[in-house]
Structures are given as C-alpha cells and as structure tokens.
Design a protein around this nucleic acid. Structure first.
Length: 677
RNA sequence: GGGCCCAUAGCUCAGCAUGGAUAGAGUGUUGGACUUCUAAUCCAAUGGUCAAGGGAUCGAAGCCCUUUGGGCCCGCCA
C-alpha cells in the first residue's frame, strides 16, 4: 500500500498538478504550486476508492476556485498522463473535492501477498540503524510485580520491539534500585522484627517480601515512631556498601529480582542489561557529573538565607520557566551561559521563586533522589566515561539474548549500552522530575530531544476489584499502594487467566494432550495481558477490573489469535501449499477479499506510525483490524471445496499470507499466535 | 498558588499530531446465524448537542482562547 501511495504522490508532484493548474488558470504558476503544495495522499475510507488526495482543497485557496472543479481537472489530467502501467487504474474526482484513485488490484495483490511471506515483511528503515537505549521496569527489588508495573514493562518491551522493527539498534535496560529506602524497609523487617527468610508455601520470595515484610514493617513504623531512626541508619549502612546490612540487602534484592525476572520472562519480556544503583553510587559518576554541572553554571549554591540555604539547587526547575519554548533560546549556541544568568537575574526580582528551585545536594552534602538520575541519564546517552564492567547474569534468559549486568572491578567483556536516543519509560507522576533531567541532558548534548521520558498514566483498581481486596470505596477507582498491600499481583492475574484459557481450550478440544493445552493457554493468557496493557493510549488511566480482564471475547488478544487459528485450520485441511504463482486477478470478487489484502498491505505503515510516535497502541489496533478483515472474509468467502481450482488456489494463497501477517503483527507486540485454539 | 494530563454512545475506548466525504469499535440490551474451512465467530437493531462557550477558517470532534468537571505532580522523602 505504501508503494501505491508513493507512486501517486510522485506523479502528482511530477506533472499532474502543474498541468492541471495551467489548464484551469493559465496565469498561475503551476510549476510553483506543484513544488510547494503540501498535499497528502492517504488510504481512502471504504467506498471512496483506494487512495485519496487533498490536493484540490489546498489549491482552492490559491486558485480561488471550488475544490470540486479542481479535483475534476486533476483527475482528468492524471488519467491523461498515466493511461497505462503503474498501480493505479484510474483517478476519480469526488464532488466533495477529494481526488480518489483506484488501484490495480491484480498487481497490488501480488506485491502485497508475496511480500507477506518474507522475513522482512513490515520492516522499515526509518531508524537508519540509530542506537536507541530503552529503560523500563525499574521496580524496587523489595516486592513482586503488580499489575501497575506490568503496564510499564509491556509498554517498554513493545516499544523496543517496534523500534527494532523500524530499523533502530535497540538496547534494553532495567534499573535496579537495590539501595533505596524501600529495600531498607525489608532489611529492617528481616533483621529487627523477627521475620523468617523463608517464604510460606505457595508464595515466591518476592511476594513474601512485598505482601508480608514490607507491609508489616511499614505498619510498625506507624505504631512505633522510634523505629524511624533504625530505618535511617539502615539506609546509610546499605549505601555504605561494606556493612552487614548491605550484604543482607544484596541477598534480598538478588532473590527478589530473580522472581521479578521470572514474571517478566513469562510475559515474553527480555532485557540486555541490569543496572544496579549500588554500582552507580560507588562508581563515582555522580562527582564527575556534579563538577560538570557546576562548570556549566547549571547549579547554584543557595546563599539566600531561606529554606534552601547551603544547598546546591537547580534554579526555577518547576513551573512555567521549565517550558521547552524558553530552552531553545537559551541552549542555542555559545552565548548560553550569559543568556541563562540574565534570565536568572530577572527571575530573582519576583519574590517566591525559592520554591521553584530544586535541591539536588543537601546542606549536609548528600545527593537527593533526582541527583542519582542525572549521572545515570548521562551514562545512558554515552556522555560520561563508562565506569562499569559487565558480567553475564547468573540465570540464562529465555528468548535468545544474553542478559548482562553491571559490575565494578570485573568484566566478562566490553559492552556498550549507550544510545544516541534514550527512552525512559516511567509513569506520568514523575513527569516533573523527568522534565528536569531531560532539560539538563539537552544542555549536555546539544540535541534537545535525545532524552525522552515516555510517560504513561497509572493503573488503578476498579471499585469492585478494590472491594474484593478489602478496601471500601465510594469512588469509581482506587490507587494501588504497596505500603498498604492494596494491589493486584501480576503472577496471580496470569494464573487466573491461564486457568480460564485452559478450561476454554479443553471445552473445544476434550482429547487434547496436556502439553498442547499448556502451550495454548500460555499464549492466550500472555497475549491477553499484553494486549490489555497496550490497546489504549498511554495517557488514559486504566481502571483494572479482575472480572473484566478475564474476558476472552471482543477486542482482546484471543479474538486476533482466533482468527489466526482459523486460517491455520484452512491451511491444514487443504493439505497442500498454494502454488507459487496464482491468478491474483481472481481475488476481488468479494469486497472482503480486497479489504483483507489492503489490511495485510498496511503493516509497514502501521510500524512506521507506531515507531514515530512511540505508540504501541497503533500496532495493537492494526492487529485487531487485520483480524476483523479476516473474519469478514472467512464468513463470506469459502476457500476449500470450490469447483474453481484457480480461485481456490488464489484464496488459499491469501489465507497463507494472512497467517504470516498476523503472526508477524502479533509478534511485534510480543504475542504468539497458536495454530489451534 | 503553579505545572502536566483527561473529557466522544449506558460503560470502556479509537479518530485529534498533518482540519475536508456518512464520527467508528468493543461491551451492554434485543433479535437472528453452527448437518458447512472451529460460534473464543458473524449479521441486524439499539445507542452520539464529540463537556460548555467563544474565535480564526470556504469547512472543526480535531486548531486558538476562556470556563466547568475529574486525575496526577509541586519536601534538604525515595
């Protein structure tokens, strides 16, 4: 389909518009219009040909004529100039002013359907081999993953797959905050509150830590405020690195991480490297970056005598001043520092600026939370010397890629995980802080868009599901809370879905063996979870409802998988491969056939759309539309048992192409398409 | 007080970046289609002042401004 649009675009640009203008209005400069008109050629909606251009609307203003008349002239000129050959049969003007085009489906079908079987089907080169580093997951290693984390993980993994498909060289990181307060909390629990190191039967270590230790320890803080000091001390000991507390923290976080990775791997999510915060802290990267910030005048030592006195701060980090419009002016060229200090002087005249400043080093000399993100961001962009060694992770990662982890002072090989672009997947509550990091990276590296915070709205619990977890709420939704134990565990959701999918599969195939049922129900439950997490836009809050999420009908992964299984069954029953050469002109007797071919042929455009906008939803919707087209075809056009062997061959070829296409499209969002359901 | 995001059918959402033809799905409700390549499917009916108001445009669900309602963020916590 992309070839069709490109052909029309070029012919319009080349001579059609120019000649049509000359004919309509001899005085106008048709050549100028042809060169400068920002017209578009896109796929038509059903009933209006195959492709459509808005050129006539745009010319209407310039020529002071009605779009309808101009459309007529363009179509006439197109047909006159291109009487034969090419993918377009004819151009047809529409009274509304759209210029429509009808494709030569015999030719186009052959291109599309033969392409669908290739390994490169849907590949795009828009990435041009650019190294891109994606970071996602990054869950504190003191708890099992809940359904809110799953959204992050699936978005991150799917975006990575899409970028890879569109020609980017992608590396995927998972940041492990193994020395934060949340880890300190479980260490306090194990060391001082008498919890056993062994989880109860039926729970993973990660679930045990999150459900029991973390929740109960934070409850104890509330009833016994004196523990607060213990918590502080423990955090310091962990950051120190050489203490007993640090060793215990290391053991706990490694065990929790191992469980978290099992959950991720089960969902077909894989990584290239695990980055440990403790390594970042001990690497000395912060000092180097802090010096650079000081050199570049991006931080100030606050001497105002106000509440931030004695702290290093980033001025005007919050509020309107952080907007991107202002940045381009300041960061542009070498006059940057004078420009920014000038702007700063002006700002100081308005009184309450102080609370817009962001403290990054406390008056006692320690770095704040956001300060840890800054060197890491710079490292991801390759802006600092890499202090890490890399060793293989202890457990082999399924999926074929090697999983590395950072190390200090030892290394199994030289690695480079830096990207020209960096995409960090974090929920939108962090947008404020991420904006600061992003702005700083823009100053470090002149291209301002190199560091992207890919934000998404959170997952909340529907009132029904919240109630089922023991929380009474009169609101429509409730926010999850790790501290209060109010969340839905990812493994449990998977397990519920798997049981339901297995039951549904057995209902249809009572004699099927256990391994097959297991494989199919796994594909369905993984697919269902992944699809639910990406099918809507990133800026929509998802109110997770346990009941509703178990549905396998309608706009779900299983709908799409089912269409694939139906296609497989036809191919199986046919008992033969379609011939290499079929008469593609026979496909088109039914509208559903053309619609299906058109859907198959739109894959590459969906990939590019998704990659450009970092939008997994685009591919999810593509998969759904593809399945809808196939089901319509399936209902209307019989494939097997036709009297017409030529038509049967052609339709069989179409079915096989669809089967390839749906497998690849689902694969792009990390979903397998089973042959039988 | 400042900032970010959302508002389209009873419910959950596409469409908005790049304005153009009859605003689409799913779900729900009602009715219909399995002796046929799998009914996890399909067909039909039902359901919309695109939050409100204003502006620019030949033309707005989409762009600009204002307002309302909702969510989130704004600590020398992490």
């Amino acid at each position: 389909m992309k070839a069709l649009l490109e052909e029309i675009r070029q012919r319009l640009r080349h001579d059609v518009i120019q000649d049509a203008c000359a004919e309509l209005d001899g005085a106008s400069d048709g050549g100028h219009h042809a060169r400068t008109l920002p017209f578009d050629v896109s796929l038509s909606r059903p009933g209006f040909g195959d492709a459509s251009s808005n050129a006539a609307f745009l010319l209407a203003g310039r020529l002071k004529m009605s779009p309808s008349d101009i459309a007529r002239a363009i179509s006439a000129k197109y047909n006159e100039r291109n009487p034969l050959g090419g993918l377009v049969v004819r151009s047809v003007p529409h009274p509304s002013g759209h210029v429509n085009f009808e494709a030569d489906w015999a030719q186009l079908s052959e291109i599309i359907l033969s392409g669908a079987g290739l390994d490169t089907f849907g590949d795009s080169e828009i990435g041009g081999g650019t190294p891109v580093t994606v970071e996602h997951t990054s869950v504190n290693p003191n708890k099992a993953l809940h359904i809110g984390h799953v959204r992050n993980i699936i978005i991150g993994d799917t975006v990575s797959r899409i970028l890879r498909k569109s020609g980017h060289a992608v590396k995927v990181l998972n940041y492990v905050d193994d020395s934060g307060l949340q880890v300190a909390d479980v260490v306090v629990g194990f060391r001082h509150l008498g919890f056993s190191m062994d989880p109860p039967p039926g729970k993973t270590f990660a679930q045990y830590c999150g459900d029991e230790i973390y929740v109960k320890t934070t409850q104890r803080y509330d009833s016994d405020p004196s523990l607060e000091g213990l918590r502080r001390d423990t955090l310091r000991e962990i950051e120190d690195g050489s203490t007993e507390a640090a060793k215990l923290a290391g053991v706990i976080t490694r065990r929790v991480l191992a469980d978290q990775l099992q959950t991720c791997w089960r969902l077909s999510v894989y990584y290239d490297c695990l980055n440990f915060e403790s390594h970042i802290i001990r690497s000395g990267m912060w000092g180097a970056v802090f010096d650079k910030l000081k050199d570049m005048n991006l931080v100030d030592l606050d001497r105002s005598g106000g509440k931030n006195d004695g702290c290093w701060v980033i001025r005007d980090a919050h509020g309107a001043g952080a907007g991107r419009g202002e940045d381009t002016g300041i960061s542009d060229g070498s006059s940057g520092s004078s420009g920014s200090s000038n702007a700063r002087a002006i700002r100081k005249e308005s009184p309450p600026e102080e609370n817009r400043d962001k403290v990054i080093v406390r008056s006692n000399g320690t770095a704040t939370y956001i300060a840890k993100d800054i060197p890491y961001a710079a490292w991801k962009l390759g802006l600092v010397d890499d202090p890490f060694g890399y060793v293989r992770y202890d457990v082999e990662q399924p999926g074929g890629t090697t999983l590395w982890q950072t190390a200090l002072g030892r290394s199994d090989g030289a690695m480079n995980f830096a990207g020209e672009r960096v995409i960090t997947v974090i929920d939108s509550r962090q947008s404020g802080l991420q904006r600061i990091v992003s702005d700083l990276m823009g100053r470090f590296k002149s291209s301002g868009s190199a560091y992207v915070h890919l934000a998404y709205e959170s997952v909340t619990l529907s009132s029904d599901t919240a109630r089922a977890l023991g929380m009474e709420t009169d609101k429509r939704q409730a926010h999850m809370s790790g501290r209060r134990g109010l969340y839905v565990d990812a493994d449990s959701v998977y397990e519920e879905l798997r049981k339901k999918a297995a039951a549904e599969t057995l209902k249809r195939h009572p004699d099927m063996g256990d391994p097959d049922v297991a494989r199919i129900s796994r594909d369905i439950s993984v697919g269902t979870i992944r699809y639910e997490m990406i099918k809507q836009d990133l800026d929509k809050v998802i109110a997770f409802d346990m009941e509703r999420s178990l549905s396998l009908e309608g706009d779900t992964a299983s709908y799409i998988q089912y269409a694939g299984a139906r296609a497989s069954r036809i191919l199986e029953k046919a008992g033969r491969e379609p011939p290499d050469a079929v008469d593609f002109g026979l496909l088109g007797g039914e509208d559903a056939e053309v619609a299906l071919i058109r859907a198959i042929g739109s894959f590459e455009m969906a990939v590019e759309d998704a990659a450009r906008n970092l939008s997994p939803k685009v591919v999810a919707r593509y998969c759904h539309d593809l399945a809808v087209s196939f089901n319509a075809f399936y209902e209307r056009s019989r494939v097997l048992g036709l009297d017409d062997p030529g038509l049967e061959d052609a339709r069989l070829y179409l079915v096989r192409s669809f089967r390839f296409a749906v497998t690849r499209a689902l694969g792009l969002v990390g979903i397998s398409a089973p042959d039988v359901m």
